[in-house]
Computed example of a mutant assay.
Amino acid sequence: MQKPAFAPALSLLIALAVPASQAMAQAAPYPQRPITLVVGYPAGGSTDLVARTLALDLAARLGQPVVVENAGGAGGSIGAQKVASATPDGYTLLVGANNEMAINGLVRKSVKYSLKNFTPIGLLGSQPLVLTTTPTSGIKSTADFLRSAKSRPGQMTYGSSGVGTALHVAGEMVKQQGGVFLTHIPYRGTGPLTTDLIGGNLDLGVFVMSSALPLIRSGKLVALGTTESKRSAVLPNVPALSETPALKNVDIGVWFVLVGPSGMPAPVVARLKTALTETLAAQDYRKTMEASGSVVPTGQPDLDKYLVSETEKYRKIVEFANIKDE
């Protein structure tokens, strides 16, 4: 049977239509479907709070749902590796913090990713850590703490949320700067750390501000000092540790960043950066973040350089304290 005369022309049109439809799909403005924000910790922590606050505002600005996925384990490394290995299309992003972005590679042999495996998008905020004790400890100030620590070297204990965490590194910075010997007690998260500290099984505890704030305000813990160079706006009567001459160089906090896999298309990165700039300026976002003790940036650093410099800062402390988490 002879084919219709228009058959070759029809076949040509179909052949041309397929690549044309693909090109249209590729040219469709980002995003076209829901975006996942991966958090390398269980729900309820400081990084999770930042991610959920960010997700609400980003969703409104991008016109697509933004879903938080908790992939906890290995100090945030499991979640970070998930994003580092993801397709770089802008639909899988990481809300990361110090641990997984700067510290874990220094202390964990199991970490297979590095900064080069990520596309930096922006700094979301930061908050200080706080050195705490209990009302019954007899320690009322930083001076009391240093005097007690020097009088019984190695006998005072401080707890953190785990080996190689930002809380642990901050404690080691205090030891290094203050010239004191404290015994570190690692915990699997701030829950058991809080229980033991309030129960009198520890002398001191290092917390992220957002975790410590309710306990300080309720009188269950006493804040001796915050770890950034300036006092925290949510605890203005608590001195920065650096106000004590022996601890003048203590300056460390927890920061949060938004990154994606390496190799993301430039237009996608630009769209995300624009949406993030708008979010950081939004009153609802700033109010929620600041209420938890965070400082929201008014401008953006060169995030590549920022992450490199922060990693080098932690490297010095990790080497000083010989921190390893096999």
Rank of each mutant, 00 (worst) to 15 (best):
Y41R: 00
G45S: 07
G40I: 10
S46E: 07
A51G: 11
R61L: 13
V39K: 04
V39A: 07
E69Y: 08
A60T: 03
Q81N: 10
R61W: 01
Q32N: 11
P31A: 00
G40S: 04
P29A: 15
G75E: 01
P29I: 07
A60N: 06
G63S: 11
A27S: 15
G90H: 08
A25V: 13
G73V: 12
G79E: 07
G44Q: 03
Y30K: 00
L58C: 08
A60M: 10
A74I: 01
A27F: 06
L62D: 01
K82S: 11
G40K: 06
T36M: 09
V83H: 13
P31R: 03
T87H: 12
I78D: 04
P31K: 01
Q64S: 04
G44E: 01
A43W: 06
Q32V: 14
A86V: 13
Q26A: 15
G73F: 14
S77L: 13
T87Q: 14
V39G: 07
L62G: 08
Y41W: 10
G73T: 07
A51Q: 04
A84R: 07
A43E: 13
L37C: 04
T36L: 10
G76E: 10
Q81S: 13
L58G: 01
I35H: 00
A28E: 14
A84F: 12
R61G: 07
